[in-house]
Amino acid sequence: MRGSVMGTAVTLAAGTLLAAAMTTTAAASPPTAASTPAKASPAPTVLVDCYFHRNVRPEDFILACGDGNSRLIDLHWTEWGPDGAKAIGVNMVNDCKPYCAAGTFHAYPVVIRLNGQQKWHRHPSFQRFADISLTYTGGRPDTFKQVVTYPLWD
């Protein structure tokens, strides 16, 4: 039994010395690229949707939150940064004829631009885009101008 206690004591002492040696060596070593913490990059500017979720380069986006009668689909982003964002996609718009529930959705190709970076009041650690502009590159709904701009949700 005495040999067992002695063996355990020697093992514990050796483990303690090994841990102390490793700590001293690590503390004395100069920092390397692998051990130096990387600077956190700032959070990207977000696009806030109808449900107040933050989005970065979404594939689709609802413009008409109340009824869903206008939405962007097939979005392909070519730019995304604090100075703005740009995409091409399709605006699906319901003609609401004879009324919206019985209407037909029509596809209109558009260029989308996001602008106006602002602090997001719900989540102040994020910047959000304040407005969205659509430029219709072909046909467009009867009552729409070629370029329309909408404020975005906060």
Rank of each mutant, 00 (worst) to 15 (best):
R2I: 15
V5H: 14
V5Q: 11
M6L: 15
G7N: 09
T8Q: 06
T8P: 00
A9D: 03
V10Q: 02
T11M: 13
L12T: 14
A14G: 06
A19K: 02
T23A: 07
T25N: 05
T25A: 12
A28F: 00
T32I: 07
A34S: 06
T36F: 03
A38G: 02
S41W: 03
S41G: 00
P42W: 11
A43T: 08
T45N: 14
V46Y: 01
L47F: 13
R54A: 14
R57Y: 11
R57F: 14
R57Q: 15
D60S: 14
I62F: 13
G66V: 08
G68L: 06
R71P: 04
H76T: 15
W80P: 00
G81I: 13
D83G: 09
G84H: 01
G84A: 10
K86D: 02
A87D: 03
M92H: 07
V93P: 02
V93D: 10
N94K: 06
D95S: 10
K97Q: 13
Y99M: 06
Y99I: 08
Y99L: 05
C100L: 10
G103K: 04
F105S: 01
F105R: 02
P109E: 01
P109C: 06
P109R: 04
R113T: 14
N115M: 02
Q117K: 06
Q117E: 11
Q118A: 09
H123C: 00
H123T: 07
P124G: 05
F126R: 01
Q127E: 14
Q127W: 13
D131C: 08
S133K: 08
Y136S: 07
T137V: 12
G138M: 09
G138V: 10
G139M: 05
D142A: 15
D142K: 15
K145Y: 13
V147L: 15
T149Q: 12
L152S: 09
W153V: 08
